[in-house]
Design a protein around this nucleic acid. Structure first.
Lengths: 232, 232
DNA sequence: TGTACATCAGTGAACGCGCGTTCACTGATGTAC
DNA sequence: TGTACATCAGTGAACGCGCGTTCACTGATGTAC
C-alpha cells in the first residue's frame, strides 16, 4: 500500500523535494534572509504562485529546511556513532568519531549549519516540529557518555554545592541513567562543541588556526576529558 | 584644539550617533537582515537621502555597527579584567570575571551579539576595520593566562606530537610569552566560551538549563581548568 | 565688523527593483458508478 | 470499459509594499578678505 502510487502523488513528492533542493542552493548562495519563493520558482521554471500548492508560506518552507538540516546533521552523528560502536571502539574514539562527523557535516553544509546554529532568523520562531530533530546530536553525545558510564569508565569531579539541585534536574530530564555530576559537563561540552565548529565555519579562525583538523581533534579530545571519558 | 568645535561639526557627531542608535534599535527589533536606511531615516524624521551625508551605503552603516559591537564587548571584558587585576584577584577569579562580563554583555545586547558572533550577514564581508576590535576579547583572555604564567601558576598537559608545529606557530602569533602547550587550549577555550554564550543567547538552552548563572559559572570554571589556570 | 563666496546638510521626487501573497482560470489526473 | 464529475497542479495577472540609491535643488553655516 505504499510503493505503488498515483502519478500525482509521485509528482508531489518529487516536486516538493526539488523545491527544497533549489531553496538549499539559494541558501548556500545568499543566506536565509534572502531566500525568496519567487527566485526558487523562477529557477524551477514555475510560476511563483505554484509553490503555494506545496508550501503555504515562505516561513513553512524555511521550517522544512530547518528540520531537514537538523535531521541531516543528526543522521551524520548517529551514523558515526553506530559505526564506532559496531567496531567496539573505545569510548574516546566514539566521542571523536561523533564530533568529527558533526564538524564534517558543518563544513560541507555551511549555510544549512548557519540556519540552525547561527543567529535566529528575525521574525521567525521555530515551531514544535523542529524540537525533536534539533535534539538528535545532543542525544548521540549523551549516548556515548552513557555507554562509558555503563562500563564503569566515567571519572568526574564532584559537584559544587549550589549546583546540586540544577544538576539533578538536568540529569533527570536528559539522561536519567547518568550521575548528576555528568549533567553540567555534558551540556557544556555540547554547546562548546558548537562553539569550536561555529568559529571555524563562520571564519573566526581565519589567520588564527591553520591546521584545523589537528586542532579540532585536540580540542575535541580535551572536551572528552571534561565529560569524564577515559583515555582522553 | 578639540573640545571647541563649530556647530556643524558638533551636529555631525551627534547625528551620526543618533543614526547608529536608531539603527541599533532596529537591529534589536528586526535583526540585521531587515535593517533598512529608509526605516532609520523615517524614525529620525529625516529624508532617507539625508543619511547618505553620514554613511555612503547601507553596508558602511552595518560595518559601523559591527565595529561598535566589537568595541563594546571588548571594553566590557577589559574593564572586568582591569577591576579584577586592581584588587589583585586570583587568576581563576580574573578569568571568571572576564567571561562573566562577556556573557553579561551578550545577554544585554543579544542582537548586537548575533551581529558579530552569529551567522555572517549574507553578501557582506567584514572590512579590515573590524579586525582590531574583533580581537579585543581574545586578547583579554590571553592576558589573564599570561599573568598566571608569569606567576609560574600555569599547569598544562604536554603537547601531542603532531600538534607541535601548529602550536608553536599559533603561540608565536598570538602570545609569544606563553609556552606552546597553551596555544590550543587557549584558542579552544576562546571559541568554546562563545559556544556557551551563543547557546544561551540563541535559545538552545531553552528547557534544558534553568539556573543559567550557576551553570555558566561552573562551565567557565571548567574552561579555566583547560587553559591551566590554578585553583580551578 | 561686514560682505562675497564656498561648503555642506538636508529635501523631495524619481528610478528600478524584487518581494509575498491572492485570485479566477485552465487543463490534466483520479474516482465512482 | 466508458462516462461524469471531483480533485488538484499550475498559470499569469494583479495587489501593495518597501527597499537602496541618485540627483538637482534650497538654505543655512563657515571662511577669507
Amino acid at each position: 500500500m505504499s510503493t505503488v502510487r498515483g502519478a500525482r502523488e509521485r509528482a508531489r513528492i518529487e516536486i516538493t523535494a526539488a523545491i527544497k533542493d533549489e531553496a538549499k542552493k539559494q541558501l548556500a548562495a545568499e543566506g536565509a534572509a534572502k531566500l525568496s519563493l519567487r527566485a526558487v520558482a523562477r529557477e524551477l521554471g514555475m510560476a511563483s504562485s505554484a509553490l503555494y500548492r506545496y508550501f503555504p508560506s515562505r516561513d513553512e518552507l524555511l521550517t522544512a529546511l530547518i528540520v531537514d538540516a537538523y535531521d541531516s546533521v543528526g543522521a551524520a552523528a548517529e551514523a558515526a556513532h553506530r559505526a564506532a560502536r559496531a567496531e567496539d571502539a573505545p569510548h574516546l574514539a566514539r566521542w571523536l568519531a561523533v564530533t568529527r562527523a558533526v564538524r564534517g557535516w558543518a563544513l560541507a553544509h555551511p549555510h544549512e549549519y548557519a540556519l540552525i546554529y547561527g543567529s535566529p532568523v528575525p521574525g521567525y520562531t521555530a515551531p514544535r516540529a523542529t524540537i525533536g530533530p534539533a535534539a538528535r546530536v545532543g542525544l548521540v553525545l549523551i549516548a556515548v557518555v552513557v555507554d562509558a558510564h555503563r562500563a564503569d569508565a566515567l571519572t568526574l569531579p564532584p559537584l559544587a554545592g549550589d549546583l546540586r539541585d540544577e544538576a539533578e534536574r538536568m540529569v533527570t530530564d536528559i539522561a536519567p541513567d547518568l550521575p548528576p555530576e555528568a549533567a553540567t559537563p555534558l551540556i557544556a561540552a555540547w554547546s562548546q562543541l558548537f562553539g569550536l565548529i561555529s568559529f571555524e565555519v563562520f571564519g573566526q579562525f581565519h589567520r588564527v588556526v591553520e591546521n584545523r583538523e589537528v586542532f579540532f581533534r585536540e580540542a575535541a579530545t580535551a572536551l572528552a576529558r571534561t565529560v569524564g571519558l577515559p583515555g582522553a
